[in-house]
Structure formats: C-alpha cells, structure tokens
Amino acid sequence: MEHVTPIYILSGFLGSGKTTLLSRLITYFKQQGLRPAIVMNEIGEVNIEGLVAGEEVPTAEMLSGCICCTIRSDLSSEIAMLIQREQPDVIVIEATGIANPMEILDAAAEASLYMRIDVKKLITVVDAAHLLHLNIEQKGKTYRLMQEQIRAASALVLNKMDLVNDQDKETIQQLLGRWNPYAPIIPAVRCDLDVEDLLQSGPHGQNEHSHVHGREDRDVHVHVDKQEHANSHDHADNHDHGHAHDSHDHVMSYTYYFSHAVNSVEFERFIAGLPRDVYRAKGILTFNDTNSRFLFQYAFRESDFLKITPQGQVPDVVVFIGEHFQKSLLREQLEMLEGKISRA
C-alpha cells in the first residue's frame, strides 16, 4: 500500500512559542525512528529558524509572504515536491503568526490532490499573557486573528503559563473553552509538554478521526497533474522580494542585513527602545565585544540571546515584524550601530 504522509500544522500568533514546539516535535519524531520534514513560512525575507533547524531535517522554505495569501498557492506544490524529493515519514507545517489557519487547512487539502497525505492535527500555540492583554481591550485585527487561530485548532497549547497568576490562568482557560469547546487545552511553560499526549489527544468527547468543526480528517487519492504542479510556481517569480514587504495591511516586516559586527550592549539598548508597534524581531548577529554569533529573539518586550555556530554561509541579519512602524527610523538606528552614519 502506498504510504500516506501524516501532516501536522502549527498555528499561533507571533512570539507564542511555535518554533520551540516545532523543535520538540522534530526531536520526538527522530526518537521514534521517523524521518521528519518541515515546511516553514516567514513573512520576512530570511527564515531565521530554518538556519538553525539542522541540515539533516529536509525543509521547504516559503519566504516573503504568508501561506494564506500571497504565496498560498505554493503550499500544495511545496508539500508535493518535499514528499517526492525526500520521502519523509511525517511533515510539520509551521505557519507565520499572521496566518489564518482555516486558509492553511484549505491549502493543505489542495495538496491532497497531488499526494496521499493525512492532516492529523492543527495545533495552535497560545501566549497566555498576550491573550489576556488582548482580551481586556477586545478589539483590533490581532485579537480577531488570535480568535480564529484558537477556534480552528484541534489541540491548544496554552504556553507561557509562568507569566500569569492563578486567577488569570482560570480566566484564560475559560476563554479558550468558550471559543473552542472541542480542543483539549494543554498548559505549558516554554512548550515543555508530553509530545505523545499532544499528538494522540483528541477532541473532547470524540476520537481523533471524528468530525470536528464541520471538517473531517481523511486522505484523498488523486493522480498528480505534473504540468499544473509545475505551473503553480509561476507567480512566485513575479513576487515582490523587496526588503520592506507589507502583508495583511496591518502587519508588515522589515529585513536588515549587517555588514559589520555590532556592540552587544548598544544592540540590547536599541532593542529595549523598540516601538510597541514592533511585536516580533529575530536574527543572527555577531557581537564585536564577545567575538561570538548569537540567535536573537524578541517578542512583546522580551528578548533572548542564544550562542550558536551556524553551518555554512549564514548572513548577519535581523527581521522585524509589527504594525505600521517606521522602517526608515529602524534602518537609521541600525546603521548608527554599525558606524555607517554618525550619531547626532
């Protein structure tokens, strides 16, 4: 019998912890003797997580756009090519934080026209503290998008529970229960959880293959139209790959490539002063005062630095994601850090 490739979709807003969970899933699959593959989507030009995911894990990168809009039609062909080229035992799709998961499900369903696949689960990672903050105001596109990501999930990972008190924990769990009464809720800190329990957990009162939210998990067996498959990439050649890619009207990104190492103290000062409109930033940097390279992550006023040794030719780069921030101001500040322009 021809192999049916299981697919897991990771959803969740910017900085919720999807990449941490992705890393735990990949480790788990390897321990099970399986060969995993990844489809990673970033709104910026450079997939920072992909640079450190490990060369042994086949990865299809979809950059400068979002699965659910500007390059959505590419997702099905990326999955098909990944299966044909690498023959993985399992695929994990990590969507950018601004993606509507129902659109991703539709795109993954389209891939079933090419290949025998089975979308097993849509897992949404929820930042507990951020959701609590958004729920106080109960308005804005970010709030509505997070609702959609939660409602579409077949399992919810309620992450960063160490950042909320006991009363808030109960409030958040009740909120998730109202928005999605079917999905099991798994509390976690840094997405530290039992992966097997997560993957095997089914909707409340139903088994994993039951009909959920009007959608039934099944695999479809259709012959691949190779010409259509090849043509599905045509529009990508005309896609705008400029440094300042805008998407979803309210969400935008800015990519900056460094030509020199920068001072770590000055960079941390710059990050601490980022406008609130910048929700997420990440990059790989070389600091001239430590002579080391670091993976840098920033989400909702918190930053983290991890010393790394990237493989191959990896540029020093940082990507900012947010709403209506001034790209020119960020560029000017970064050029000052590099000494390209003098300080006023």
Rank of each mutant, 00 (worst) to 15 (best):
M81V: 02
N47F: 01
E42P: 09
N100A: 12
G205D: 04
I71F: 03
S64W: 06
L199T: 02
E45S: 08
D277I: 12
V57N: 06
C66N: 08
D162W: 07
I271R: 00
V125N: 02
Y279E: 08
L198C: 04
E338R: 09
Q147L: 02
M62Y: 06
I7N: 01
A344W: 14
V222W: 04
I186H: 09
L132A: 15
Q149M: 02
G242S: 15
S264D: 11
L22E: 03
D197C: 09
A111C: 07
L25P: 09
E335H: 08
N207P: 00
H324T: 08
L34Y: 10
C69Q: 01
H239Q: 14
L285Q: 06
A107P: 04
G44A: 13
D217P: 15
D316Y: 00
L63F: 01
E137A: 08
V57K: 04
E61P: 06
K120I: 04
G205R: 12
L82M: 11
T96Q: 02
A108C: 09
P88E: 06
I26D: 00
G44I: 04
Q32M: 10
E86Q: 11
R35P: 05
M1N: 04
T59V: 14
V189W: 07
K141C: 01
Y28V: 02
A60Q: 11
H239P: 06
H250W: 04
T290V: 07
V92G: 03
H250N: 11
R178S: 03
D289K: 04
S259V: 10
L329M: 12
N165H: 12
R190A: 15
K160D: 00
L334C: 10
V262T: 03
T70Q: 07
S112T: 14
T124I: 09
T290A: 05
P101Q: 10
Q174W: 06
T171E: 15
H223A: 15
K169S: 10
C69P: 09
M102P: 01
D237L: 13
D194S: 05
H211L: 13
Q167R: 07
R215S: 13
E216G: 14
F294M: 02
T5G: 08
N165R: 12
S112I: 05
F270G: 01
S342V: 05
L75N: 01
Q173K: 15
A37M: 08
A95P: 04
V222I: 11
E228D: 14
I186A: 02
Q333E: 15
V119K: 06
V92K: 00
G283E: 06
V319I: 08
E338A: 06
I136T: 12
I117D: 07
D225A: 03
K141F: 03
V265N: 08
